[in-house]
Design a protein around this nucleic acid. Structure first.
Length: 100
DNA sequence: ACATTGACTGCTA
DNA sequence: ATAGCAGCCAATG
């Protein structure tokens, strides 16, 4: 566990209910704008162990980056339960993106 | 040690 | 709006 990972986890923890963040945004806040892909690795590893709100993390377009059958539907369901509305498999980042 | 693989991004056309 | 592409970098085998 390095500092980047640690920060990223702390940041993900702070995403408020009903808001979302993007991989790139988290990577940037954690100190390395170019490590968006690491966020996905982190989620894979720690979402189950640390109870992170992994479902509030989307790609830069506001879409879920999972493929059907690998958790996409689960994620979508959890977001909708938090009143995040989808418009054809995509959410409106102007409205839901978490901003500090 | 090397090559491949991603829950990514931003630019270009 | 959409698609292709190069850059990116840790994890994995």
């Amino acid at each position: 566990m390095n500092e980047f990972t640690n920060k990223a986890i702390e940041i993900i923890r702070q995403i408020p209910k009903g808001k979302v963040a993007t991989y790139g945004q988290i990577a940037k806040l954690a100190g390395n704008p170019r490590s968006a892909r690491r966020i996905s690795h982190i989620l894979h590893q720690y979402s189950s162990k640390f109870k992170l709100p992994w479902h509030r993390v989307l790609n830069a377009k506001g879409e879920i980056s999972l493929q059907v059958g690998t958790g996409l539907e689960e994620q979508k369901a959890m977001l909708e339960k938090e009143k995040v509305k989808f418009q054809k498999d995509r959410i409106d980042l102007n409205e839901y993106l978490w901003q500090i």
